[in-house]
């Protein structure tokens, strides 16, 4: 039995507590925005927010999660799982990502966006080294330049 709060909704499933959060999201709850990339916490495609921190869900047993989980689906529809402040930030990041035309193949981008959200939530105007330190998600298409630009744009956009 696993009890969690995901995108603001409490859920209870009979899933194996050892099942990584990633697969609970994908295979049990059909929240497929969170991607499988490596299963080792290296690539970041499976990034979700737990209590606002970016966490690689492929290495976190679902049964150990006590915080509130937010997935990329909340960025698509911010009514779910975000406080009003977080929702505004999520919207800024989403708009910056689109304005900078960041994604190519797009597979890593949900994780990138959530990692950027986690960064901007604690550091509203990150320096280049801060961006480099926080954004450890891997992108095979090489969108890093545009990721940097989108984060700067989202930071500048705060009103």
């Amino acid at each position: 039995m696993v009890r969690l709060t995901i995108n603001g909704t409490p859920i209870e499933t009979d899933a194996d507590p050892e099942m990584p959060l990633l697969w609970l999201l994908r295979d049990r709850l059909d929240l497929t925005g969170t991607k499988y990339g490596c299963g080792s916490g290296l690539c970041g495609a499976c990034t979700v927010l737990i209590d606002g921190r970016a966490v690689r869900s492929c290495t976190v047993p679902a049964g150990t999660v006590t915080g509130a989980v937010v997935t990329i689906e909340a960025v698509a529809d911010a009514r779910h799982g975000f406080t009003p402040d977080q929702a505004r930030l999520a919207d800024r990041v989403r708009r910056a990502w689109i304005a900078e035309q960041v994604p190519q193949c797009g597979y890593c981008q949900p994780g990138m966006v959530l990692a950027a959200l986690a960064l901007l939530a604690v550091d509203p105007a990150p320096t280049e080294p801060a961006i480099a330190a926080a954004m450890t998600n891997l992108c095979r298409c090489g969108t890093y330049d545009r990721v940097r630009r989108a984060i700067r744009r989202a930071a500048d956009d705060r009103g």
Binding site: T34, K35, I72, V75, V102, G106, Q109
Partner: peptide, 27 residues
């Protein structure tokens, strides 16, 4: 021209191969 796929790829709505769901499917 802005890309058609960017918005859906930014907020997780884009359907990749791994995201396909077919009724009755197993893994």
């Amino acid at each position: 021209i802005p890309r058609r796929d960017v918005a859906a790829k930014t907020d997780g709505r884009a359907t990749f191969g791994i995201d396909v769901r077919v009724p009755g499917m197993v893994y």
